[in-house]
Nucleic acid binder design. Structure first.
Length: 221
DNA sequence: GACCAGGCACATC
DNA sequence: GATGTGCATGGT
């Protein structure tokens, strides 16, 4: 990837980490999904859940030709609960999907392109006001469905950064997001790969019990 | 059987 | 503002 050099020291460190991860894992091709709408549905369904389970639910919706705003908007809640059962938290997630769809239809007549035509931080605030959409889900929607340069922070990101002394353990979501956004070029492709690479690193080496042997960031120890 | 997963809201202090 | 808890399936 061609990324222009950040000028701050922190930016250089973040790019060093990125390059090590990219060399180790290669491009992640995120987000898995055929359409922006599918990405949004996946972002809500994957909250505190493994992607394997989300895939089953997405396939249920796909098979029923329901992975499209109007169809899902009209679908009765009880049927939705049934179709997304494998993800766990199905009652609450069905409500969250419905809450997003109500927002999409009330404010944008169900038109995602219209929604994404809003300025990024303004849209982010609107998304955050929907019950069930917190910062990580909002940023995933902006970045991976909308193609907007909003950095996504997750549990792995916090763990990895704090273990390498770049943040305190208690740093807030917004602090961590700003760390990346203030010190890296505002590049959608970079943000896309970076978050995906951190998740890959997290899954392999930085779970609650770390398995640091072979970790591409070992060089910093 | 305990622990964890690509969070979030809400209650309580 | 900080801390605790419910939500629930499926894999290690």
């Amino acid at each position: 990837m061609e990324i222009k050099q950040p000028h701050s020291l922190l930016g250089q460190k973040l790019m060093e980490i990125f390059n090590l991860l990219y060399d180790a894992f290669g491009p992640r091709h995120w987000w898995p999904g055929d359409s922006p709408f599918e990405v949004i549905v996946g972002a809500i369904l994957t909250q505190n859940t493994t992607w394997k389970n989300v895939e089953k639910a997405i396939n249920n919706l796909k098979r029923a030709n329901l992975l499209e705003p109007k169809a899902l908007y009209r679908l009765p809640y009880e049927i939705l609960v049934d179709l997304i059962h494998p993800v766990g938290f199905f009652n609450i997630k069905a409500k969250r999907l419905k809450a997003f769809l109500n927002f999409l239809f009330e404010e944008f007549q169900g038109n995602l392109e219209e929604m994404f035509s809003l300025e990024m931080e303004g849209l982010r605030k609107k998304l955050l006001s929907i019950p069930g959409i917190g910062p990580e889900t909002a940023d995933s929607i902006l970045l991976y469905a909308g193609g907007k340069p909003s950095f996504v922070v997750d549990a792995y990101t916090r763990r990895i950064l704090s273990r390498h002394g770049l943040i305190h353990e208690e740093a807030s979501y917004e602090e961590i997001r700003e760390l990346f956004m203030d010190h890296l070029p505002s590049d959608v492709g970079l943000f896309n790969e970076y978050h995906a690479l951190l998740v890959e690193l997290g899954k392999r080496f930085c779970k609650t019990k770390p398995r640091c042997k072979g970790c591409p960031l070992e060089v910093f120890e």
